[in-house]
């Protein structure tokens, strides 16, 4: 088609098509920053939330509820002692920190990303108290984490999935529903579709995080949710992420939202 034969009407029609497309793009908000979105109501796929406590044997439940003999309480004692020597200068008494643990994971300005309580404590330890760095699963980090989480026993999670936490929440939710590993299963398959049914002689729980850090009889010690998630990955023959990996923290945020009104029960005792 030679340039000489272009007609003004054709040009106007083409320009209006382009304008229309641009208008639709503008209306869909693709170009807008995420924070200005209204929070979307996510469908809760569990009709009833049940704690991992419900899937334990009576003796295990009794041990968790024993105010003296619950082995996890040894770490709570440790954490409180550590707090008294390392943290009171800035934060005062540990009991004044009630209500803090249930809000994690959340976006942290200093870390510039969503982090969990264990990681926030480590930031404080290394950058404020100027103590030597410790690995994620170190006794001191677990002790401080469980000591703070124990203050919120009986309260549900109070996590925010909007604003700066939204992207992490989306990623965590995506993780939960994504198949992985040689067994090609998503968290959803065991912990929602088949929750309550038995796998290798044990009942599948809903995978609720309300008991963490938890004393697992299998580990014979207190451990973090990340340790449990690594085990879940390995069980599917998927390569586990490192302790403290962002994938696990994002998933933690989603799991905390998914737990709805389930009360925190750290330190729990699980098989």
């Amino acid at each position: 088609m030679a340039l000489r034969t272009w007609r003004p009407a054709l040009l106007i029609r083409r320009l209006s098509y382009i304008a229309g497309i641009l208008y639709l793009v503008a209306c869909s908000g693709i170009s807008e920053p995420a924070e200005h979105h209204q929070p979307v109501e996510f469908e809760r796929t569990l009709t009833e939330v049940r704690s991992g406590f419900d899937y334990q044997a009576a003796e295990t439940q009794a041990l968790q509820q024993d105010d003296f003999a619950n082995p996890g309480l040894l770490w709570v004692d440790s954490g409180r002692t550590l707090w008294a020597s390392e943290c009171t200068a800035c934060h005062g008494e540990i009991d004044a920190m009630a209500g803090i643990a249930r809000r994690y994971p959340k976006f942290d300005e200093a870390a510039a990303r969503v982090i969990n309580l264990n990681q926030r404590i480590e930031l404080c330890r290394t950058q404020q108290a100027i103590l030597p760095a410790l690995p994620y699963e170190a006794e001191e980090r677990l002790a401080l984490t469980v000591a703070l989480t124990h203050l919120d026993q009986g309260q549900p999670f109070a996590v925010d999935i909007t604003g700066k936490n939204a992207a992490a929440f989306h990623r965590g939710r995506e993780y939960f529903y994504t198949r992985r590993g040689q067994m090609n299963l998503a968290c959803h398959h065991c912990h929602e579709v088949n929750a309550g049914k038995r796998l290798r002689g044990e009942a599948l729980s809903q995978g609720q995080p309300t008991g963490y850090p938890t004393y697992r009889l299998q580990w014979q010690t207190l451990g973090s949710l990340h340790r449990r998630l690594r085990f879940c990955n390995a069980a599917l023959r998927a390569a586990p992420f490192d302790f403290g990996a962002q994938e696990y923290v994002d998933l933690e945020l989603f799991l905390a939202w998914r737990a709805a009104n389930l009360p925190l029960e750290a330190p729990a005792v699980r098989r």
């Binding site: 003296f68 003999a69 082995p71 309480l73 040894l74 770490w75 004692d77 440790s78």
Partner: peptide, 29 residues
């Protein structure tokens, strides 16, 4: 650094049979 818990009941009187409970951190590897 080991952590121990000891429970001795309160308000004990002479002649009572008192149960003392103890717990300590140790891996018992």
């Amino acid at each position: 650094m080991a952590k121990a818990r000891i429970n001795i009941p309160r308000n004990i009187r002479r002649g009572d049979l008192v149960e003392i409970k103890t717990l300590i951190t140790h891996p018992m590897e």
